[in-house]
Amino acid sequence: MHFLDIAKNRYSTKKYNPNEKLSEDIVQQLTQILRLSPSSINSQPWKFTIISDTKVKSELAAVSYHNLEKINQASHLVVFSAIDNVEKFENENLSQLPEAAVNYYHQLVKPLGEAGIRNWMQHQVYLSLGFFLAGCASMGIDSTPMEGIQPDKYNEILKYDGYTALFAAAIGHRDVADFNQPTLKPKFRRPLEEVIDHM
């Protein structure tokens, strides 16, 4: 299938089939897709936590606002987190990068200050989300990106140290009656001429 067809059919799943779990082989492929995500200067300032344990998923669902049901139904939940300590990033990630990347960081990112650097790192995690959602769609796996979580509670439950949760994605297989799928609710996008310029 061409990627354009995949893009036309991909959507945010609202209702999952709780009886249809992803195989271990599929999950392992997804871990590799996450690991291979792109980032500015190959900075990789992230951690991905893949959760299948029902108890942990339920705890996270309870601090996820309107996403509770989706998380409990989905096969897995993937939590996307960013390094929240600039010194940690510079010591552990930046130190492994080539000189050109280090120079870029010191010239264009470091002057932004701590808040700006954290913001830059979080942008990289959003890049990984887009890559991951596309990967899921290419494999016929349904997904739901969700910013509607309580990061502080996620950090406590997952015992994060040096990282902070930003958002999550439920993954699995849709319920056949999910109202949000394109065959039941046509996908809406703004007209092409409103969002694309050619020069």
Rank of each mutant, 00 (worst) to 15 (best):
T49Y: 11
F179G: 11
Y11I: 03
K88W: 09
F188H: 15
K21Q: 12
A7M: 14
L158Y: 03
L166Q: 13
P145R: 04
Y65E: 05
F179V: 12
P38Y: 10
F89Q: 10
I50D: 07
V78H: 11
I83S: 05
D197F: 15
E20P: 02
L97H: 00
Q181L: 13
S143A: 15
H123G: 08
S37N: 08
N85G: 10
F132E: 09
D84Y: 02
D161A: 12
K55I: 09
A100L: 10
P145K: 13
P191L: 05
T49P: 04
Y160C: 01
I71N: 01
I157G: 04
L129V: 11
P182N: 01
L77P: 02
V27Y: 03
N180I: 04
Q181A: 14
S95D: 06
Q29H: 05
S64I: 03
E194F: 14
I51K: 06
T49L: 15
L192H: 06
M199H: 13
M121P: 01
D5L: 01
G148H: 03
L34K: 07
E87I: 12
K110L: 06
Q28I: 02
P18H: 02
Q32M: 02
D53H: 10
Y16P: 08
S58C: 11
E20V: 15
T13A: 15
D197E: 10
S43F: 04
Y154E: 00
V79R: 00
L133E: 14
L166G: 05
D175Y: 01
P186G: 00
L22E: 05
V79H: 14
N93R: 15
L68W: 00
D197T: 13
K15R: 15
S58A: 06
H106G: 03
H198Q: 09
I51S: 00
S23K: 05
P18Y: 09
K15P: 00
V109M: 15
A165L: 04
A82F: 10
I51E: 01
L30G: 09
F179C: 01
L77W: 07
S39K: 03
P98A: 01
F131P: 06
L4E: 13
Y126H: 13
S39Y: 09
Y65Q: 11
E114A: 12
Q150V: 14
D175M: 05
E87P: 07
I157H: 03
K15I: 15
E24I: 13
T183I: 07
T49A: 08
N155P: 07
M199R: 14
A170N: 03
N67K: 11
Q96K: 15
L97G: 00
L127C: 15
R35D: 08
Q122A: 15
W120E: 05
Y105R: 02
P145E: 10
V27W: 00
P191R: 12
S23N: 09
E92K: 04
P98I: 01
F3V: 07
A115Y: 01
N155G: 11
A169G: 03
D152M: 03
L192N: 08
T54C: 04
L60P: 00
L184D: 08
